[in-house]
Each structure stands twice: as C-alpha cells, then as structure tokens.
Design a binder for these strands. Structure first.
Lengths: 206, 206
DNA sequence: CATAATATGTGAATATATTCACAAAGCAAA
DNA sequence: TTTGCTTTGTGAATATATTCACATATTATG
C-alpha cells in the first residue's frame, strides 16, 4: 500500500509538519507544505488522498490530525529498540547521538570485536557479537545499524540476519547479500560527496 | 547527458569493478556486474551503451577500460578539495575519516563556531567561519560537508553559498533553501532508520 | 569452415511516477 | 443568498525508468 518512494516523502511531510507546529501553526495547505518540503503540491495531495487523509476544500489540512494519521500509517506507537554494530569513527559518533528518542527509537546496545572498545566509556553497554542473540531476544530488536569496515561487512550482515535482524542500516560501501525478507538501507558518505563533485564539475563546464 | 539516477548507478558500477579488479579479474559481464550491484543486466548494458561504453559481443567488458571510461565521465582527474562545517558528533567522525583520498578528494579544513574546537587536536586546521572565504579562495573549494545542528543549518548553508560553495552534503534534517545553481545532498540517519522500522513492522503484520 | 553457444546492443512494450487541467467543495463577504 | 475566491481531489496526459524480446557480433569447437 505504501511504497518505498512514498515513505521517504511521508517522512519529509512529518518533519515539515513538526516544524510548522513548533512555529505555532494549526493548519496548513498543500502549497505551504510544498514550499517547506520541495515536493509539488499536487503530489502531496495525491499522497494524502491515496492514504485516505482528507483535507477541507478550503481550510487545508489540520496539522495535528495530519501528524496523527501519519503516525498511524508509520505504525509503531511503541518505542522500538535498535542496536549498533561497529565502534569505529562513525559508530562512536552514532552511539553518542541523542536523537533516537525523538524518532521513537531506543539504542539499547553496541557491539565491537575489539575488547578494548567494550568498556563503560559509552552511553550504552558494548558487547562482543557472541552476545548478539541474548540482546536481540531480551530487547526484541529487529533493526541494526552496521558501521563496520568494508571487508567484514558481508560476514557481519549474514550473522545479524541469522540472529533475527530484519532491517540493516549499512554504512559500508558494499552491496549486502541478504534474504528477501531483510531490508537494507545504505548510507555512503563518499558516494554522496562524489555525486556533488560530479555535478558541481558539470556546472562549471556549462 | 548523465542524470542523477544514473550517477548513483555509475558509482555502484565503479565500486563493484574495483572489487572485482582487486580479486584479480580482468574482464566482466553484464550479468556478473548485475550479481555484484543488484542492478539488472539489461539496465547495465543500456547505461553503458548510452554512455558510449561498448563491450565485445562475447568477451564482455574489460575492467580496466571500463574504469577508465567511468573516470572520464565522472571527470575530475585532479583531486578536489572539500571542507567540513560543524564538529559535533558526526563532524568529528568525518574529520577522522580516512577515505577521502580514495575518492580523489581532500579534506582541507574544518570550521566550528566553538573556539574550544579550534585547536590542533584534529587532522586538519579548524577555523572560525569568518575565515571561510580565505580557505575557499586558497584551496578552490566548491563542496562542503555540513554537520551542524538543525537550528543553524539554513543560516550556515546560506553563508556557504554566499561564499562560493556550490555543493552541500547536508546532515541536518531540514530542507535547505538554496539557489538553483547549488546542489544539496541530504543524509539523514534517523529517516533511514525510521524507514527500516516501518518496513520491518509491515513484514511482521503480513 | 560450418555450427553452436554466449553476450552484447537496442527498439518496442510495459511499468512507474509526476504533472496538467479542471470539477467540486467550502468559506467569506456583499 | 448569491457571487467570487480559494483550495482540495482526481482522471487523463505526460514523462521517466525499466524490462522484454530478439537481432547481431564474437568466439569456441568439431
């Protein structure tokens, strides 16, 4: 019912709506949202319409109601637990990050092969991957952030999947081979930078 | 000529090719690349064809030649300089990151408003944003990584643009308003996590 | 040299996503 | 209550991306 492209947009709507709400607004219009999100007004209306969210022909959309309905669609009233694997540069940054709560998430544990990393210096307990199953069982975790080096990425991913992980946020620049029921989202800083380089380069030539 | 969708794929090809090369292979086939990248073989051939890259009707594609041609298309033989703005959690991780060189990039300086951050503890000099123009002029920088808090993101972005930045890799969860000639790429960890949550949730219900 | 096998290359068909164009609803004001 | 303006909601048209189907080139082999 809701496809991948849409989820991305829905989140943009949500973020924009939260911003507008914080500014004290109570209602909004497809055009304002468009302004705020960069998504065309028609498309916004189509999305809402398709999701069964309806506005008023002149009064626009009620922000609170909208947020509520988006929350329903995104599901997960209850907080969801996440784990983090790999405490390198990116991993350590993510363990210090404080925004999980805001997104209704909770980072419950981190994992690293290096015993030196497994100290109490971090905000969450750090374990060896051997303890993975314990943690996933205890906290009912199905999503993992994976910030491990490229060479061990596939192995780690397979291990995570074996132990019940169904969603992986992967920072390694490799295409992970996982079963169909597992979803991988990739974040690759270098790739994004290179794309910028390429396009600024093009502009110079033109 | 090369659209945004394609650049993403081209980079995947490049990464996969580098991997294959490292494994000692000299030639490859659209099917192998498909296996490696998750992109369909036909689409790969179409892409190559459209870019004027031709293989042999039976021998497949020569990896070195392919890489060379991709490099030509991506342009930028010469190293490009990048700056980093904001030394919070993510910023500090990115300043420590060592992979820029590999992508033919060079992180030349970082910026932060907090004077305490402007020490020599980091691998690159850290300045106040007042010195931005000096740095961009000296190093001919047109791309910036922006890892600043949400509330100052728009302001920072505008300032960067005023000072000649044409590409921004933005980690703040806001849609930046920039002139048409500026390209923004967003990376948002929370959004990606939420999408995973959403989809693993769906699977549970189904 | 003929034949079989393998991959590429590409026009046509299909699928997907987005915009256009406009009717219908709702509010405001005369 | 009528008129006019605004904004939603949506079928149809367009644009974009991907796959199908197959002709064509190339190599290997008997």
């Amino acid at each position: 019912m809701v496809n991948l492209l849409q989820t991305r947009r829905l989140q943009r709507y949500r973020m924009a709506l939260l911003r507008l709400k914080k500014m004290g607004l109570q209602k909004t219009f497809s055009h304002s949202l468009s302004e705020e999100t960069g998504i065309s007004a028609v498309l916004i209306r189509k999305d809402f319409s398709q999701l069964g969210i309806r506005g008023r022909r002149r009064g626009g959309y009620n922000i609170d109601r909208l947020l509520e309905q988006l929350k329903l669609i995104f599901g997960s009233e209850k907080e969801q637990n996440v784990i983090l694997v790999g405490l390198g540069n990116i991993g350590s940054a993510l363990v210090k990050y404080e925004g999980y709560r805001q997104g209704n998430m909770n980072l419950v544990a981190a994992f690293d092969i290096d015993p030196a990393k497994r100290t109490r210096r971090y905000q969450v307990p750090v374990y060896s991957l051997e303890n993975l199953r314990d943690v996933t069982d205890t906290f009912d975790v199905s999503v993992a952030i994976m910030a491990v080096p490229e060479f061990s990425a596939q192995e780690t991913a397979s291990y995570l999947v074996e132990n019940g992980i169904k969603g992986i946020l992967n920072f390694a620049p490799v295409l992970l081979k996982v079963p169909d029921h597992v979803l991988v989202n990739n974040i690759n800083v270098m790739v994004e930078l290179e794309r910028l380089m390429y396009h600024t380069g093009i502009k110079q030539k033109a």
